[in-house]
Design a protein around this nucleic acid. Structure first.
Length: 330
DNA sequence: GATACGTGGAT
DNA sequence: TATCCAAGTAT
């Protein structure tokens, strides 16, 4: 992992950069290492320091984050970078309490940054740690109710020295050996101490409260091509789904057929065959895509035309990219 | 405590 | 195809 400073690096005098640790931890929230890698490389190459990031344009950061999901993270990332740059002299705080004050930094990230970047003896509890603790101590309380109990257990094991290395080791254990399904108990270094292994309950832990089924929502988006190639895009409001991101104007997304709405611009609309399907955290979406070609002088009611050379499908959320693909392959 | 909030890969 | 799941946070 490009952000990791291992024991060997540390022995060679490498000191972790809190900016890089913080950035990686924000990206890793509910997101796999594989998905984060390229984004981390692009962000650190384009904005090498927290001051560089603080000086960035909002739309550039949102475009760079596009595709990674949970876009509130990107908005809070910028807020946080600006607080650190403008109010903290460009220096990240090193205590959990101070880190918790920063936008987008919760209990996990605060613990991770203080332990990994500053070698503080902080508790670090992510999904991996919860699973490892639940098994190690055979905790049957379902999540998320079990969180305080599991945090207390994690705290009891957190060492005074090298807590960052320890935290990463436990997370690595959870990611590679003590996995949700088919845990590799046979090669687990903690097998001798594992109470769930003893009880034969490891694979069933941690217990989780059942989740609700996802409803299906429907909507319409409009992809408008101007004769010079420009595309009609709209910046979504900061609050809510895909907040702050560019997208195609369209209807609201609701259960049962798309609601009444107005097209973003007067045109002869053609409905594309098929639909763009996408699943969000709490609902499935089926998007109908309508397209039209409009003359230069036609003014949109919503959104603005983006010149062809300024548009990249990688700058918009995946669901919008799916709609664009339907349009582009038409 | 419950809900909103993305995405892609694994099974 | 459908569900589960990943280094969570904000409200």
């Amino acid at each position: 992992m490009p952000w990791r400073v291992g024991p060997k690096d540390r022995a060679n005098g490498v000191i972790p950069d809190p900016y890089r640790i913080w950035l990686s931890e924000i990206m890793l929230q509910q997101t796999t290492v594989a998905a984060v890698k390229d984004y981390f490389e692009r962000f650190t190459k384009r904005w090498p320091t927290v001051r560089d990031l603080a000086d960035a344009q909002d739309e550039d950061v949102m475009a760079e984050w596009a595709g990674l999901g949970y876009y509130a993270r990107a908005r809070n990332l910028l807020k946080c970078a600006r607080v650190v740059a403008n109010e903290k002299g460009g220096v990240f705080p090193d205590t959990v309490d101070a880190l918790l004050e920063l936008p987008g930094v919760g209990p996990y990230t605060a613990g991770a940054v203080s332990a990994i970047a500053f070698d503080k003896s902080s508790v670090v509890v992510d999904g991996n740690v919860e699973r490892v603790m639940a098994r190690l101590y055979d905790v049957h309380t379902p999540l998320p109710a079990a969180k305080p109990e599991l945090t207390a257990l994690a705290e009891s094991l957190t060492p005074l020295e090298r807590a960052g290395d320890y935290a990463q080791a436990v997370m690595d254990l959870g990611a590679t050996i003590c996995t949700p399904r088919n845990p590799a108990c046979g090669i687990c270094p903690w097998r001798p101490a594992c109470q769930a292994r003893l009880a034969g309950t490891a694979v069933d832990l941690p217990k989780k409260t059942p989740k609700k089924p996802k409803p299906i929502r429907f909507g319409v988006v409009y992809i408008t091509r101007r004769v010079d190639g420009a595309l009609l895009l709209e910046r979504r409001p900061d609050k809510g789904l895909l907040g702050g991101m560019l997208g195609w104007p369209g209807s609201e997304w609701v259960e049962k057929e798309a609601p009444k709405h107005q097209a973003p611009i007067r045109a002869e609309w053609k409905t594309l065959n098929g639909e763009a399907r996408h699943t969000f955290t709490h609902f499935h979406l089926r998007l109908t895509v309508k397209t039209a070609l409009v003359p230069m002088e036609r003014e949109p009611a919503v959104g603005h035309f983006l010149p062809l050379e300024d548009f990249s499908p990688t700058d918009i959320p995946t669901v919008m990219r799916k709609a664009f693909n339907l349009f582009h392959s038409d």
